[in-house]
Simulated scan of single mutants.
Amino acid sequence: MIGVELFAGAGGMATGAVMAGIDVKLAIESDSCAAQTYLANHKNTTVVIDDIQNIKEYKFERNGDQVILFGGPPCQGYSYSNRKTRTAKNPKNWLFKEFIRSIMLVDPDWIVIENVPGLKKMDNGFFLKAICDDLRNLEYTPNVKILNAIDFGVPQKRERIFIVASKHGIAFDFPIGEFVNKPITVSEALFDLPFLQNGSMKPKLKYRTKAVSEYAKSLRGNKKIVTQNYVTKNSDVIVNRYSHINQGNNWRDIPVELMENYKDHTRCHSSIYRRLSENEPAVIIANYRKSMLIHPTEDRGLSVREAARLQSFPDHYNFIGSLDQKQQQVGNAVPPLLAKAIFKKIIEYSE
Rank of each mutant, 00 (worst) to 15 (best):
Q53Y: 15
L138Y: 06
S166V: 04
I176W: 11
T227P: 02
D264S: 11
V48W: 11
E178R: 12
K233E: 15
N41M: 04
N137P: 01
Y242N: 07
E29S: 07
L147Q: 06
Q247N: 08
A189Q: 03
N93Y: 10
R208I: 01
S81Q: 06
L135P: 00
P91V: 14
E5N: 07
D134P: 00
F127P: 00
K263A: 15
M201N: 05
F191T: 02
I22W: 09
T46P: 04
A14V: 02
M292H: 12
L128I: 04
K167G: 06
V226D: 01
E57V: 04
K326A: 08
I284F: 01
K206G: 08
R300N: 07
Q156A: 03
S30R: 09
A17H: 02
N148G: 10
L219N: 05
P281Y: 15
G331I: 00
F343M: 02
K120E: 09
F179M: 13
K233T: 09
F179R: 14
S30Q: 14
A282Q: 10
A286D: 05
T209A: 11
L205N: 03
K59T: 07
F191M: 02
S270M: 12
A35G: 09
I22Q: 01
R252P: 08
H316L: 00
Y317G: 03
N250M: 08
R158Q: 12
E260H: 12
V180T: 13
P108I: 00
S277Q: 11
S166D: 12
P296Y: 13
P203K: 10
C33P: 06
Q327L: 13
P74S: 13
I238A: 05
L135T: 02
A211P: 08
N181P: 00
S187W: 08
N332E: 01
L337G: 12
G77S: 07
Q247C: 04
T209Y: 07
N148R: 08
K345L: 00
D236H: 12
V334Q: 11
T232L: 10
N198W: 02
I28P: 01
F179C: 05
T15I: 05
K290G: 15
I163A: 11
I347P: 02
P314G: 06
C268R: 13
V226C: 13
L6I: 06
H42V: 14
Y349E: 14
R305G: 04
K97S: 07
S350L: 14
A333Y: 00
K224W: 03
A8F: 14
V256N: 09
K210T: 07
S102E: 02
